[in-house]
Design a protein around this nucleic acid. Structure first.
Lengths: 203, 203
DNA sequence: AATATAAGCGGACCGCGGTCCGTTTCGACC
DNA sequence: GGTCGAAACGGACCGCGGTCCGCTTATATT
């Protein structure tokens, strides 16, 4: 009898060589993105640079978009770490409202910096509910700490929506708004949401 | 001397056969979308059904996404017409707040109905600033009629953002919210934006 | 060490989006 | 009707994303 004790269903065991190839592919992809840009990146080039066959790319990442999403996840984890355990006001330790304002600006810049990768990841990224869930949950927690009344589940997702890449593109690239104006606008939006409709207003 | 009097630069004249082919392609595409779905639509099939070569598709629409965007534009114009000249409360004649609420629900349903086409149109649709501009301008006008203070240019785009397809997908399909809950949440968001944080001045 | 087995691998292959260029057609002017 | 330039056409062609299947290799077991 084989050792049938998967601790808490830790999933299908990943073979060593597979893990090595995965890392090699991610590194190769990152290097090629830096060299050629996201647009001109071909899966064959990534496979060749990593020293593996093209089929391996699709075995590991499912699609070109999946590869892009995996690249993004790495950057995303760094960003999440700065929210979870970084210095205030983005990280813990600052009052909720200050954290919320810091979140908006930071998330906006993060989206602008990663815009090319985010668009290349396409729906694969949009369906990455682990990431989206973290972001909206964070906002929800802050809203709750601010004693906001109402459907926090909805409000948190709705407040994150204006920070999406296509919206920023419309506002900044097409509409001619400055980044500062967008940030100020978002802060104002948040202030209106946080301010309670009926009782005395907060500053 | 040829008749060099382009009335207000009415652009390059479209040849008759080109216009006919354009219509034939749009109709063929619409029929095939109804039959095979958006996903399995190939440009070659559209061209064949329209009785033209594949090159013509790309000459007229630039890309597969452009063709999808053209299809969408037709539906979009119908929707815009119902806003401009349709019956209240979506059309003119109702108080601004009622129009705004009607707008949200209508736009949400429109996005859900056309979701497949919108995603197939991709960035081509996202860059259709004529459409996006109309929507945000409409919201901006209503906010202005409601005497909302602040950066209306930002607020209007920010209020439209939560109605985008990926957001709705996250809320409804992944998050398990009902359509009614989403509409109610958006109405609440609008109410908070319209309610003045301070009667005399805003920060 | 030997064996068994399932996971991984590679690269030939396919289909479709997109391009290119020689040919055709439109329509303006004589 | 004839002529001419420009616009449009069509389909062969190309490159890349994605699949498939026979071969290789890691790992567990004895």
């Amino acid at each position: 009898m084989p050792n049938e004790l998967p601790l808490l269903a830790n999933g299908p065991v990943i073979r060593r060589d597979a893990a090595r190839n995965r890392e090699a592919l991610l590194q190769a992809a990152a290097e090629l993105v830096g060299a050629c840009g996201v647009r001109d990146l071909t899966t064959e080039a990534v496979a060749a640079r990593a020293g593996v066959g093209k089929g391996t790319v699709f075995r590991r990442f499912g699609s070109r978009e999946g590869l892009m999403a995996a690249l993004l996840n790495h950057r995303e984890e760094e960003w999440q770490a700065s929210v979870i355990s970084g210095p205030p006001p983005l990280g813990p330790g600052a009052p909720p409202m200050e954290r919320l304002v810091a979140f908006g600006a930071s998330r906006l810049r993060h989206h602008r910096e990663q815009a090319a990768l985010i668009e290349a990841a396409g729906s694969t990224w949009g369906e990455n509910y682990a990431v989206l869930g973290f972001v909206s949950l964070h906002v929800r927690t802050l809203l709750s700490q601010l004693s906001v009344q109402g459907d926090l589940g909805y409000l948190s997702t709705a407040l994150v929506a204006p920070l999406a890449v296509p919206v920023l593109r419309q506002q900044i690239d097409a509409g001619g708004m400055s980044e500062e104006r967008v940030i100020a606008g978002w802060n104002d939006l948040v202030a209106r949401v946080v301010a309670q409709p009926s009782p005395t207003r907060s500053s």
